[in-house]
Design a protein around this nucleic acid. Structure first.
Lengths: 140, 140
DNA sequence: CTTGATCCTCCAGTCGCTGGAGAATGTACG
DNA sequence: CGTACATTCTCCAGCGACTGGAGGATCAAG
């Protein structure tokens, strides 16, 4: 038998059941056929599609980007510029997040390193938070 | 005159008005006194407190951590271990986020670099997403 | 036939805001 | 003094991407 319950799809794709229903509700997954008793039934294509989604989410793609990637994946004759552009945009996004976090790390690290474990009165952590002027950079 | 309207507090602390009201609603800012016509009135201490909050948020501290930091800052005789521990925990969190993003960057970069700008049929971006086996690492 | 697993829908909550509706004030100008 | 515009008030809904609970129906096994 090649039809799957939502539970089977969940385990095969590694995505929780409420999440699957959520994906359906936002149009990432097409509404599947149903049994007489109204239960969702899926096929192997649904497993592939859901794995694609899961993988893209794990790589940090937003749902909107995934929606576009799925449209592209469904239409194999198209040029792949669009997919490439989405991935490049995502890469740029990741890189900017890394840079920002590295700057934060420097600030917080400095804060922690200068703490002399005394009283709050003279705590560097508290001081830095209270006064921006202690910071490495003007703008975070 | 040393009392401020919410608008003045907003500009002096660099925090939007709805956000100030939100902070009050979640207990980060204490409910201020009011005028006869029910408008909030603040003083210089409120500006300092709100700047502290803003700065901590800019450094990526979660609201819950800020709540604890504020309690500590209000009680200057306490040992600063607790503040230090919060900051260290935050530093560890930032570092783990950086590591995770660097791993993602490697995956996505590889995906993008191997794209040959042909058709979607043979697009590396789509292929990688469709099949986890193409990835650098087993687990993201 | 009964038990327990699985499924259904609907709704509320998470986090940290953000913004709109609609009404009440405050301030400035003529 | 009136009018216009700015500011404030409260309440409520929405973002993104889920997560989980309530309450009820159905299925599979013993």
């Amino acid at each position: 038998m090649s039809t799957l319950t939502i539970g089977a799809l969940s385990t095969q794709a590694g995505v929780k059941i409420p999440t699957i229903r959520y994906y359906e509700s936002i149009g990432l997954l097409r509404p599947p056929s149903r049994t007489d008793s109204n239960r969702r039934t899926y096929d192997a294509a649904a497993v592939r599609r859901l794995r694609f989604i899961r993988h893209a989410r794990e790589l940090g793609f937003e749902v909107d980007a995934i929606r576009q990637l799925l449209t592209l994946a469904d239409d194999p004759g198209q040029p792949c510029e669009a997919a490439d552009a989405l991935a490049r945009a995502h890469l740029a996004d990741i890189e900017s997040k890394i840079r920002r976090l590295q700057a934060l790390r420097a600030e917080v690290r400095q804060m922690v390193d200068q703490c002399e474990q005394g009283e709050v009165r003279s705590c560097h952590v508290i001081e830095v938070l209270a006064d921006h002027a202690h910071c490495l950079h003007e703008h975070h």
